[in-house]
């Protein structure tokens, strides 16, 4: 993601409790911890993600608990360790995604995160490659657009930063047909002028001959 101009939370890979604590102290609290395993796709569903940990004891507890949970639920999963990264707190959570359609190629998706995507399915799709105007159109054609520009005394977020994110994913998915699906969820975006963060990214790959 960094190679395509996205800011991702800085972090370290830890294989032991003490390494995790060291990492957390270096980054500064609060932190997020995520299990690293090629066999675990839906990490948070299996207790493989812990958010907002603010003490060294918290890191130790979380490390042990996550290892235990994964071992119980997926005894055969290969565990490579735990990733400790900075907790991004300020901003609106949105989702930027891509799914490759067999007919029309990469389709970009935009939606407001959480309940807006999962329950209300308030998302828009556009075929890549996409222009800046089209990216802005995508934002405007969701019902939750009002949330983006600011509602109920809430400050609006940097729309251009989201549009740029969509354009960068458009470029990535047209450059690499091997990427079958991609979710940036959440893509955390703040007020105008602040840098958005791709807090969690998931990708599905396919061989060119698939």
């Amino acid at each position: 993601m960094r190679a395509y101009g996205f800011r991702v939370p800085g972090g370290f890979h830890a294989t032991h409790t003490y390494e995790a604590v060291e990492a957390a102290e270096r980054i500064g609290y609060p932190v997020v911890m995520k299990i690293v395993s090629p066999d675990v796709v839906h990490k948070s569903d299996l207790g493989g993600v812990r958010l907002n940990i603010s003490t060294a004891q918290g890191v130790r507890d979380a490390f042990d608990l996550m290892m235990l949970r994964i071992n119980q639920r997926l005894p055969d999963a290969r565990i490579e360790g735990i990733y400790v990264e900075k907790m991004v707190s300020k901003g609106l959570e949105i989702i930027i995604g891509m799914s490759r359609d067999p007919q029309f190629g990469p389709m970009l998706m935009f939606g407001l995160g959480g309940v807006f995507v999962e329950v209300m399915k308030d998302v828009t799709f556009y075929i890549a490659p996409i222009t800046h105007d089209e990216a802005m159109q995508m934002l405007m054609s969701t019902r939750s657009y009002k949330m983006l520009v600011g509602a109920r005394g809430q400050q609006g977020v940097d729309l251009k930063a989201i549009a740029t994110g969509l354009q960068r994913i458009s470029q990535l998915s047209t450059d690499f047909p091997q990427i079958a699906e991609l979710d940036i969820n959440p893509f955390i975006v703040g007020e105008f002028g602040t840098d958005p963060v791709a807090a969690d990214v998931r990708m599905a790959l396919q061989s060119p001959e698939d």
């Binding site: 796709v41 989702i95 995604g97 891509m98 799914s99 359609d101 067999p102 007919q103 389709m107 998706m109 939606g111 995507v117 999962e118 399915k121 998302v123 799709f125 079958a180 699906e181 991609l182 979710d183 969820n185 998931r202 599905a204």
Partner: peptide
């Protein structure tokens, strides 16, 4: 066909 293929991402499901 996109609607029939198995999807592992949110985007894939919604697409």
């Amino acid at each position: 066909v996109a609607g029939l293929k198995a999807a592992s991402s949110h985007t894939g499901v919604l697409a």
